[in-house]
Design a protein around this nucleic acid. Structure first.
Length: 449
RNA sequence: GGCCCUAUCGUCUAACGGUUAGGACGGAGGCUUCUCAAGCCUCAAAUCAGGGUUCGAUUCCCUGUAGGGUCACCA
């Protein structure tokens, strides 16, 4: 039986791929894959005035970037299936299950004639994997519109026909469609389609409990990629928004999610989108990244004066890995004092910053920097020899004997001009021997005046 | 407003009707330390309210309240 499961995600290309849609698609994907079934992608572009190719591309590329691959070899577009809908529409008309309605109250843009379904006016009960039995009285729907004309079905009709023809067994979609379900069931019964099993997954809400919209920040998947969120983090976070396998582990790869996913454990209530938790997932996955992958992700954010392939950037890697939450931060981290601003240029700091707080003496600072200068001068200048390790080895004993703060603090400030900075050995190797000595001389000069 | 759905720390959530109501994010404090961060440890923080059912309700039922969805010739 599990082999028969077919799910679909059917976005309409009237906007960029929304982060909430990604989760709906993800649950479709996870459910079908965890049951050894198929997952299809269909473009619901019956609304010709609002659908665009650019949005379609955004959606398709979004799923490709996430690695949520669909099983239909060719993209299915409703706009290319008008003949199919026409056939069903005509049949309904012929069987007297639908009728052409002459409209009285015609608004701007409305047709004078539309096709309406003859509503049998009954109670409809359907089962939902997440909400169990749900009952509606369809009387209040009236004879609702199913098409503007034989060539122009509206969403509900096209969707039902396609789900039927594609053999969709499980319709997994956002909760906003729960109230749409009875009218779609009426259409199903009219065209003689069998009823799929439903799963209406809870909405994702903004922190103020309203619908997640641009007003609250980024909503498009592409926004998150542009900020430098990792696909693994996005998928993992979204999977855990409204779902939980029950244990205490939270880090799951897509493969592991497929193995673990269970639709009956999906939450019934809406979930609030919490960017801080997403940030945490992203940091977790950044930590796991290999140097090679980290560099690859960094490329579009590295400032022009720094090359991703340079030895200098390699030395910066561990610092960057521990500091950033999203990759776009690399863009500004090199511009800011107290971050990595010192790498490109030394800021004009006050001489007193060189003094260790527990022993603020210019003489002491001067003396120690002088020693450090000589020690550094004696280290051979090459990428292999002027490393954080050799620099540390050259200074550590002296620092321990004379007080680490007394020796290392002035060096730290001399090299970076910042009160917050990486350890001085790493800073020195990043700057290189020449630049380090230049800055040390400058510090010495500052202490003399 | 009608109809429908929902309700555990601020947030995401765990708990076959029996637990000191657990974990994670965020927050606070501490340890470590030449700064910052990271890391490690500790702490604060919740069963919407009122009725039932039951020996016993976070859990089942009802009512209220609150939030969300939907009421298109959009999807």
């Amino acid at each position: 039986m599990s082999n028969h499961i077919i799910t679909r995600f059917a976005p309409s290309p009237t906007g960029n791929l929304h982060i909430g849609s990604v989760r709906t698609a993800l649950f479709n994907y996870l459910f079908s894959k965890s049951n050894d079934g198929k997952y299809l992608l269909r473009i619901d572009d019956t609304d010709k005035t609002r659908s665009t190719k650019a949005y379609e591309d955004n959606i398709v590329n979004g799923f490709k970037s996430l690695g949520l691959n669909w099983d239909n070899p060719k993209l299915i577009r409703q706009s290319e299936r008008t003949a199919v809908y026409k056939k069903y529409l005509q049949k309904l008309l012929d069987e007297n299950k639908a009728f052409i309605s002459k409209e009285n109250d015609v608004k701007e843009g409305d047709r004078a004639e539309v096709i309406r379904l003859k509503n049998p006016n009954k109670k409809v009960t359907f089962s939902d994997l997440i909400r169990n039995e749900v009952e509606f009285d369809t009387t209040e729907l009236g004879d609702f519109v199913i098409a503007k004309s034989l060539e122009e079905p509206i969403y509900h009709f096209a969707s039902v026909v396609d789900d039927f023809e594609m053999g969709i067994t499980h319709v997994i979609r956002a909760e906003e469609h729960l109230s749409n379900t009875p009218r779609q069931i009426l259409i199903q019964e009219a065209i003689g389609a069998n009823r799929p099993i439903y799963a209406h997954i809870p909405m994702i809400l903004a922190p103020d409990r309203s619908k997640l919209s641009k007003r609250h920040g980024a909503t498009a998947l592409t926004d998150y990629f542009e900020k430098g969120y990792l696909q693994e983090a996005i998928i993992n976070y979204l999977a855990f928004l409204g779902w939980n396998p029950g244990g205490e582990r939270e880090l799951y790869s897509l493969e592991e999610l497929i193995k673990t996913f269970d639709m009956t454990k999906v939450q019934k209530a809406a979930a609030i989108f919490n960017i801080e938790k997403l940030d945490w997932f992203n940091r977790e996955y950044i930590t796991k990244l290999s140097d090679k992958d980290f560099i690859e992700h960094s490329k579009s954010f590295i400032p022009e004066w720094l090359s991703a392939d340079s030895p200098q950037f390699k030395k910066l890697l561990p610092l960057l890995k521990e500091k950033i939450t999203v990759f776009s931060e690399i863009k500004t981290i090199f511009e800011n004092v107290n971050e990595l601003g010192f790498v490109q240029k030394l800021n004009n700091f006050a001489p007193d910053l060189l003094l260790w707080k527990k022993n603020p003496s210019r003489e002491v600072a001067h003396k120690h920097i002088l020693f450090v200068k000589e020690a550094i001068e004696n280290i051979q200048d090459s990428d292999d020899t002027f490393t954080a390790e050799t620099i540390k080895n050259a200074l550590w004993k002296y620092a321990e004997e004379n007080g680490k703060g007394d020796v290392l603090w002035p060096l730290r400030v001399a090299l970076t001009g910042q009160e917050k900075s990486p350890d001085p050995f790493t800073s020195a190797t990043i700057l290189g021997k020449q630049e380090s000595l230049k800055r040390i001389d400058l510090a010495l000069a500052k202490l003399n005046c």
